[in-house]
Protein backbone atom coordinates (compact mmCIF):
# COMPACT_ATOMS: atom_id res chain seq x y z
CA UNK A 1 0.00 0.00 0.00
CA UNK A 2 0.98 3.64 -0.22
CA UNK A 3 3.97 4.69 1.88
CA UNK A 4 5.72 8.04 1.77
CA UNK A 5 9.51 8.21 1.54
CA UNK A 6 9.71 9.49 5.10
CA UNK A 7 8.11 6.41 6.68
CA UNK A 8 9.29 4.04 4.01
CA UNK A 9 9.90 0.47 5.17
CA UNK A 10 9.57 1.29 8.83
CA UNK A 11 12.12 4.14 8.67
CA UNK A 12 14.80 1.75 7.43
CA UNK A 13 17.06 4.49 6.02
CA UNK A 14 16.46 6.87 8.91
CA UNK A 15 17.74 4.16 11.22
CA UNK A 16 20.72 3.55 8.97
CA UNK A 17 21.51 7.25 8.91
CA UNK A 18 21.14 7.58 12.70
CA UNK A 19 23.56 4.71 13.19
CA UNK A 20 26.05 6.40 10.92
CA UNK A 21 25.70 9.71 12.76
CA UNK A 22 25.91 8.07 16.18
CA UNK A 23 29.07 6.18 15.31
CA UNK A 24 30.66 9.34 13.89
CA UNK A 25 29.79 11.39 17.00
CA UNK A 26 31.06 8.73 19.42
CA UNK A 27 34.26 8.36 17.42
CA UNK A 28 34.72 12.14 17.45
CA UNK A 29 34.34 12.31 21.22
CA UNK A 30 36.54 9.31 21.90
CA UNK A 31 39.26 10.18 19.41
CA UNK A 32 42.19 12.21 20.75
CA UNK A 33 44.37 13.63 17.97
CA UNK A 34 48.11 13.18 18.54
CA UNK A 35 48.89 16.73 17.41
CA UNK A 36 46.69 19.81 17.61
CA UNK A 37 42.89 20.15 17.74
CA UNK A 38 40.53 17.79 15.90
CA UNK A 39 40.71 18.43 12.12
CA UNK A 40 40.44 16.82 8.73
CA UNK A 41 44.06 15.74 8.73
CA UNK A 42 43.87 13.20 11.55
CA UNK A 43 43.13 9.51 11.06
CA UNK A 44 39.49 10.07 12.05
CA UNK A 45 39.41 13.21 9.88
CA UNK A 46 40.49 11.23 6.83
CA UNK A 47 37.99 8.48 7.60
CA UNK A 48 35.09 10.89 7.98
CA UNK A 49 36.26 12.76 4.86
CA UNK A 50 36.32 9.59 2.83
CA UNK A 51 32.84 8.63 4.01
CA UNK A 52 31.65 12.13 3.19
CA UNK A 53 33.06 12.07 -0.35
CA UNK A 54 31.62 8.66 -1.06
CA UNK A 55 28.24 9.82 0.26
CA UNK A 56 28.29 12.95 -1.87
CA UNK A 57 29.15 11.05 -5.03
CA UNK A 58 26.52 8.44 -4.22
CA UNK A 59 23.91 11.11 -3.48
CA UNK A 60 24.69 12.86 -6.76
CA UNK A 61 24.38 9.53 -8.58
CA UNK A 62 20.66 9.67 -7.78
CA UNK A 63 20.20 11.98 -10.78
CA UNK A 64 21.61 9.31 -13.04
CA UNK A 65 19.78 6.44 -11.36
CA UNK A 66 16.49 8.26 -11.68
CA UNK A 67 16.86 8.28 -15.45
CA UNK A 68 17.77 4.61 -15.74
CA UNK A 69 14.19 3.60 -16.32
CA UNK A 70 13.28 -0.02 -15.86
CA UNK A 71 16.78 -1.03 -14.78
CA UNK A 72 17.70 -2.53 -11.47
CA UNK A 73 15.53 -4.38 -9.05
CA UNK A 74 15.59 -1.77 -6.29
CA UNK A 75 12.65 0.63 -6.38
CA UNK A 76 13.42 4.28 -6.93
CA UNK A 77 11.56 4.96 -3.71
CA UNK A 78 14.25 3.05 -1.82
CA UNK A 79 16.85 5.26 -3.44
CA UNK A 80 15.02 8.48 -2.63
CA UNK A 81 14.28 7.51 0.96
CA UNK A 82 17.95 6.66 1.44
CA UNK A 83 18.99 9.83 -0.44
CA UNK A 84 16.97 11.96 1.96
CA UNK A 85 18.10 10.40 5.23
CA UNK A 86 21.72 9.80 4.34
CA UNK A 87 21.87 13.30 2.85
CA UNK A 88 20.70 14.72 6.18
CA UNK A 89 23.18 12.51 8.03
CA UNK A 90 25.92 13.96 5.84
CA UNK A 91 25.61 17.29 7.67
CA UNK A 92 26.92 15.69 10.84
CA UNK A 93 29.58 13.54 9.18
CA UNK A 94 30.99 16.45 7.17
CA UNK A 95 30.87 18.90 10.06
CA UNK A 96 32.77 16.50 12.29
CA UNK A 97 35.24 16.07 9.44
CA UNK A 98 35.97 19.82 9.55
CA UNK A 99 36.73 19.69 13.26
CA UNK A 100 34.85 23.00 13.32
CA UNK A 101 37.69 24.74 11.55
CA UNK A 102 36.25 27.24 9.10
CA UNK A 103 37.92 29.98 7.13
CA UNK A 104 37.84 31.92 3.87
CA UNK A 105 39.26 29.14 1.78
CA UNK A 106 38.36 26.52 -0.81
CA UNK A 107 37.73 23.93 1.92
CA UNK A 108 35.06 25.94 3.62
CA UNK A 109 33.65 26.82 0.18
CA UNK A 110 33.07 23.11 -0.47
CA UNK A 111 31.49 22.76 2.96
CA UNK A 112 29.19 25.77 2.41
CA UNK A 113 28.09 24.52 -1.00
CA UNK A 114 27.30 21.15 0.54
CA UNK A 115 25.20 22.77 3.26
CA UNK A 116 23.47 24.85 0.59
CA UNK A 117 22.61 21.76 -1.42
CA UNK A 118 21.30 19.98 1.67
CA UNK A 119 19.23 22.98 2.74
CA UNK A 120 17.71 23.20 -0.74
CA UNK A 121 16.98 19.49 -0.40
CA UNK A 122 15.21 20.11 2.92
CA UNK A 123 13.11 22.72 1.16
CA UNK A 124 12.36 20.05 -1.44
CA UNK A 125 11.19 17.59 1.20
CA UNK A 126 8.89 20.22 2.66
CA UNK A 127 7.27 21.10 -0.66
CA UNK A 128 7.00 17.42 -1.63
CA UNK A 129 5.18 16.68 1.59
CA UNK A 130 2.97 19.73 1.55
CA UNK A 131 2.03 20.62 -2.00
CA UNK A 132 0.82 17.42 -3.66
CA UNK A 133 -2.26 17.36 -1.44
CA UNK A 134 -2.93 21.09 -1.86
CA UNK A 135 -2.58 20.69 -5.60
CA UNK A 136 -5.14 17.87 -5.69
CA UNK A 137 -7.57 19.81 -3.55
CA UNK A 138 -7.15 22.89 -5.73
CA UNK A 139 -7.75 20.95 -8.95
CA UNK A 140 -10.90 19.28 -7.64
CA UNK A 141 -10.63 16.32 -9.97
CA UNK A 142 -10.02 18.33 -13.14
CA UNK A 143 -6.84 18.27 -15.14
CA UNK A 144 -5.17 21.53 -16.07
CA UNK A 145 -6.34 21.03 -19.62
CA UNK A 146 -9.94 20.71 -18.37
CA UNK A 147 -9.61 23.98 -16.49
CA UNK A 148 -8.25 25.80 -19.53
CA UNK A 149 -11.01 24.35 -21.70
CA UNK A 150 -13.61 25.58 -19.23
CA UNK A 151 -12.07 29.05 -19.32
CA UNK A 152 -12.17 29.05 -23.12
CA UNK A 153 -15.80 28.00 -23.04
CA UNK A 154 -16.70 30.80 -20.62
CA UNK A 155 -14.85 33.24 -22.89
CA UNK A 156 -16.95 32.21 -25.87
CA UNK A 157 -20.22 32.37 -23.97
CA UNK A 158 -19.50 35.75 -22.42
CA UNK A 159 -18.46 37.15 -25.78
CA UNK A 160 -21.63 35.93 -27.45
CA UNK A 161 -23.93 37.47 -24.87
CA UNK A 162 -22.02 40.72 -24.40
CA UNK A 163 -22.19 41.64 -28.11
CA UNK A 164 -25.55 43.32 -27.61
CA UNK A 165 -24.68 45.03 -24.33
CA UNK A 166 -22.77 48.00 -25.71
CA UNK A 167 -19.10 48.66 -26.38
CA UNK A 168 -18.00 49.27 -22.79
CA UNK A 169 -19.06 45.89 -21.48
CA UNK A 170 -18.11 44.08 -24.65
CA UNK A 171 -14.60 45.56 -24.62
CA UNK A 172 -14.11 44.51 -21.02
CA UNK A 173 -15.23 41.00 -21.87
CA UNK A 174 -12.94 40.88 -24.88
CA UNK A 175 -9.99 42.18 -22.87
CA UNK A 176 -10.61 39.67 -20.12
CA UNK A 177 -10.02 36.98 -22.72
CA UNK A 178 -7.37 38.54 -24.97
CA UNK A 179 -5.16 40.04 -22.29
CA UNK A 180 -5.39 37.11 -19.92
CA UNK A 181 -1.96 35.62 -19.25
CA UNK A 182 -1.46 32.44 -17.29
CA UNK A 183 2.00 31.25 -16.39
CA UNK A 184 4.80 33.49 -17.59
CA UNK A 185 8.17 34.05 -15.93
CA UNK A 186 9.41 32.16 -12.90
CA UNK A 187 8.62 34.97 -10.45
CA UNK A 188 5.13 35.40 -11.82
CA UNK A 189 4.48 31.64 -11.56
CA UNK A 190 5.85 31.50 -8.03
CA UNK A 191 3.73 34.45 -6.88
CA UNK A 192 0.55 32.84 -8.23
CA UNK A 193 -0.88 36.32 -8.76
CA UNK A 194 -1.30 38.92 -11.47
CA UNK A 195 -1.58 42.46 -10.21
CA UNK A 196 -3.09 43.61 -13.49
CA UNK A 197 -5.34 40.64 -13.99
CA UNK A 198 -7.75 41.60 -16.79
CA UNK A 199 -10.39 39.22 -15.48
CA UNK A 200 -10.37 40.79 -12.05
CA UNK A 201 -10.54 44.18 -13.69
CA UNK A 202 -13.41 43.09 -15.91
CA UNK A 203 -15.41 41.69 -13.00
CA UNK A 204 -15.08 44.97 -11.17
CA UNK A 205 -15.83 47.20 -14.17
CA UNK A 206 -18.67 45.13 -15.58
CA UNK A 207 -20.15 45.01 -12.08
CA UNK A 208 -20.38 48.79 -12.23
CA UNK A 209 -21.44 49.01 -15.88
CA UNK A 210 -24.28 46.54 -15.41
CA UNK A 211 -25.98 48.99 -13.10
CA UNK A 212 -26.36 51.40 -16.01
CA UNK A 213 -28.00 48.93 -18.36
CA UNK A 214 -31.64 49.38 -19.42
CA UNK A 215 -34.08 47.02 -17.71
CA UNK A 216 -34.48 44.85 -20.79
CA UNK A 217 -30.75 44.06 -20.80
CA UNK A 218 -30.29 43.70 -17.04
CA UNK A 219 -30.72 39.94 -17.05
CA UNK A 220 -28.13 39.50 -19.80
CA UNK A 221 -25.77 41.79 -17.95
CA UNK A 222 -26.04 39.73 -14.80
CA UNK A 223 -25.35 36.58 -16.83
CA UNK A 224 -22.17 38.10 -18.25
CA UNK A 225 -21.11 39.15 -14.78
CA UNK A 226 -21.64 35.68 -13.39
CA UNK A 227 -19.71 34.14 -16.30
CA UNK A 228 -16.82 36.51 -15.58
CA UNK A 229 -16.92 35.72 -11.88
CA UNK A 230 -16.82 32.02 -12.62
CA UNK A 231 -13.90 32.62 -14.94
CA UNK A 232 -12.06 34.57 -12.27
CA UNK A 233 -12.40 31.65 -9.90
CA UNK A 234 -11.03 29.27 -12.54
CA UNK A 235 -8.19 31.62 -13.45
CA UNK A 236 -7.17 31.88 -9.83
CA UNK A 237 -7.30 28.15 -9.52
CA UNK A 238 -5.01 27.70 -12.53
CA UNK A 239 -2.60 30.29 -11.09
CA UNK A 240 -2.53 28.46 -7.77
CA UNK A 241 -1.93 25.21 -9.62
CA UNK A 242 0.96 26.74 -11.54
CA UNK A 243 2.34 28.18 -8.33
CA UNK A 244 2.38 24.82 -6.58
CA UNK A 245 3.99 23.15 -9.56
CA UNK A 246 6.57 25.94 -9.80
CA UNK A 247 7.42 25.59 -6.12
CA UNK A 248 7.75 21.85 -6.52
CA UNK A 249 10.10 22.38 -9.47
CA UNK A 250 12.09 25.50 -8.56
CA UNK A 251 14.25 24.05 -5.81
CA UNK A 252 15.67 21.48 -8.22
CA UNK A 253 17.05 24.40 -10.26
CA UNK A 254 19.17 25.19 -7.20
CA UNK A 255 19.72 21.69 -5.84
CA UNK A 256 21.13 20.23 -9.05
CA UNK A 257 23.45 23.01 -10.37
CA UNK A 258 24.86 23.68 -6.90
CA UNK A 259 25.54 19.95 -6.64
CA UNK A 260 27.77 20.28 -9.69
CA UNK A 261 29.50 23.29 -8.12
CA UNK A 262 29.92 21.25 -4.96
CA UNK A 263 31.52 18.38 -6.88
CA UNK A 264 33.95 20.82 -8.53
CA UNK A 265 34.91 22.53 -5.28
CA UNK A 266 35.16 19.17 -3.58
CA UNK A 267 37.67 18.09 -6.21
CA UNK A 268 39.59 21.31 -5.59
CA UNK A 269 39.46 20.66 -1.83
CA UNK A 270 40.84 17.13 -2.18
CA UNK A 271 43.51 18.03 -4.70
CA UNK A 272 44.69 21.02 -2.66
CA UNK A 273 44.75 18.97 0.56
CA UNK A 274 46.94 16.27 -0.94
CA UNK A 275 49.28 18.42 -2.99
CA UNK A 276 49.67 21.69 -1.16
CA UNK A 277 49.07 20.97 2.47
Amino acid sequence: MHESILVYRGFRYLKLSLWMVAIAVVAYIVHQPTVGPPNGGTALGYTLGTIGVLLIVWLAWFGVRKRRYGLGKVKLEDWLSAHVYLGLGLIVVATLHTGFQFGWNVHTLAYSLMIFVIVSGIFGIIVYVRFPRLMTENRRGSTQRDLLAQIAELNAKAREISVTLGDDIHNEVMASADKLALGGGALKQLSGRDRNCPVQHAVKRVGELVLGLPKSDAEKGRTVLSLLARKLELVERVRRDLRYKALMDIWLYVHVPVTFALLASLAAHIVSVFFYW
Binding site: E3, S4, I5, Y8, Y69, G70, G72, K73, K75, P132
Partner: peptide, 23 residues
Protein backbone atom coordinates in the same frame (compact mmCIF):
# COMPACT_ATOMS: atom_id res chain seq x y z
CA UNK B 1 2.53 -4.73 -17.06
CA UNK B 2 6.19 -4.87 -18.14
CA UNK B 3 5.80 -8.60 -18.49
CA UNK B 4 9.14 -8.88 -20.27
CA UNK B 5 11.03 -6.60 -17.92
CA UNK B 6 12.85 -7.99 -14.95
CA UNK B 7 11.60 -6.51 -11.71
CA UNK B 8 8.07 -5.78 -12.91
CA UNK B 9 6.08 -2.64 -13.63
CA UNK B 10 8.51 0.17 -14.49
CA UNK B 11 5.99 2.89 -13.56
CA UNK B 12 5.83 1.71 -9.97
CA UNK B 13 9.54 1.05 -9.66
CA UNK B 14 10.35 4.48 -11.05
CA UNK B 15 8.07 6.42 -8.75
CA UNK B 16 10.47 8.25 -6.42
CA UNK B 17 7.88 9.07 -3.79
CA UNK B 18 5.92 5.81 -3.58
CA UNK B 19 2.76 7.44 -4.92
CA UNK B 20 2.23 4.85 -7.66
CA UNK B 21 1.26 1.35 -6.61
CA UNK B 22 -0.48 -1.56 -8.25
CA UNK B 23 -3.25 -3.29 -6.34
Amino acid sequence: MCKDIEGGAACVRSCPTGAAIRV
